[in-house]
Simulated assay, not measured.
Amino acid sequence: MRVLFWGTPEFAAESLKALLNSGHQVVGVVTQPDRPKGRGKKLTPPPVKVIALEHGIPVFQPEKVKNNTELLENLRKLNPDISVVVAYGKILPSEIINLPPYKTINVHASLLPQYRGAAPIHRAIMEGKDKTGVCIMEITEELDAGDVYDCVEIPITEKDDIVSLHDKLAEEGAKLLIRVLDRIEKGEATKTPQDHSKATYARPIQKGEGRIDWNRPAVDLFNQIRALKVWPKAFTTFRDGEMKILEAKVYDRESEGNPGEIVDIIKGKGFVVQTGKGRLLVEKVQFPGGKPITADEAVRGYHIQKGERLQ
């Protein structure tokens, strides 16, 4: 099939690579414009653009998609059979969705109708789910509400964080995409309507969600820390400054005490913090202007003591 691909970040790059290694032809790629990145604010192309250019595929980077007649005409000239959207970053108007004969499908990182929206991987971890998945669905004008072609379920283990789960879902989503496209091409694909009464929404992550409330249970904070490890990173106040907590684990689930108090120092591992219910062993941290370090290094370098308080 002649595929028009829409995507931007690393998650989308996995699906694009799978398409390039399949029997389908990628006739064009639409991605977000290059953006400033890093401390130097250097203009950086999206991962999907890099791959497309390496393979000589036409790339389009419109600032807007809606009411963009020039883009629409350029896409028509590509004569795609189907559009595939993977974490593109903007909602497509109906004239774009319905442009190809087989319309437009989407790789979505949740078990629909759960976690429609922008941050399904983060929300599944933050809410302590023990499984998630990836679905291929038909795009409609209503957000993530189209009929579903197929889904794959993926367990969320206690060792998973946003990085590992993202990579698992990206890989499985790419495989599932090719299987679904093959079935569509052969006329063997079937779709199942979503049960809209069971829909939940994964709203975008806000920077303020990184603030740790030590009154919450240790299990909740563990989920918050691993879900927000990349951005915005979970943070707390330490000695009138900020400490980002990048890795931690539940030390116990039932103890009670003064939330935020450092109750123990474990040599070689880190420090233990009392929460509203249970305790958290902090294993990796980052201070303003510094690189990530182990909590054991922080204890030695900052002379962290039992009885100090995180807020």
Rank of each mutant, 00 (worst) to 15 (best):
G187C: 11
E254S: 15
I225W: 06
N98M: 11
V30M: 05
K103I: 01
A202K: 06
K277S: 13
A248E: 09
P100E: 05
L176A: 03
D150I: 03
T237V: 14
K168M: 07
R183V: 04
L228R: 02
S94Q: 12
V65R: 10
I91K: 12
E14H: 14
A124V: 01
P232R: 06
H303N: 15
M1Q: 12
K244F: 09
I57C: 08
R183A: 15
Y302D: 09
E138I: 04
K129L: 13
D240W: 12
I57Q: 11
T190E: 15
R239A: 02
P45A: 14
I105S: 03
Q206I: 14
L281R: 01
P62M: 05
T236H: 09
D81V: 08
I154N: 02
E70L: 14
N74Y: 01
K103M: 10
A174M: 08
H24F: 09
I125M: 09
R253S: 10
V148G: 01
L221T: 03
V273G: 00
D160T: 05
Q25I: 13
G28E: 07
D161H: 09
Y302V: 12
D167A: 13
N215E: 14
I139H: 05
Q32N: 12
V50K: 15
V50T: 15
V29G: 00
E14Y: 15
F238K: 07
D130A: 06
I245R: 00
R300G: 00
N223M: 05
V26M: 08
E283A: 03
E297K: 10
E10K: 13
L99K: 03
L112H: 04
K131C: 14
V148F: 06
E14R: 13
A87Y: 04
K159C: 01
K229S: 00
I97R: 05
R203W: 14
V26E: 07
A227C: 00
I265L: 15
P33F: 10
P46R: 11
R300P: 01
A295F: 01
D147C: 05
V273T: 01
A109Q: 08
V86H: 04
L280R: 04
I156Y: 05
I139A: 00
E256M: 15
T44N: 13
T69M: 13
V285A: 02
P45F: 07
D81H: 12
S15Q: 08
V26F: 07
Q311T: 15
F235V: 03
A174F: 03
E158A: 08
P292K: 11
K129A: 12
K267C: 02
A202Y: 09
N98C: 12
K103W: 04
T69F: 11
D161Q: 11
D160K: 00
E14N: 10
L99Q: 05
G278N: 05
D150C: 06
G40S: 12
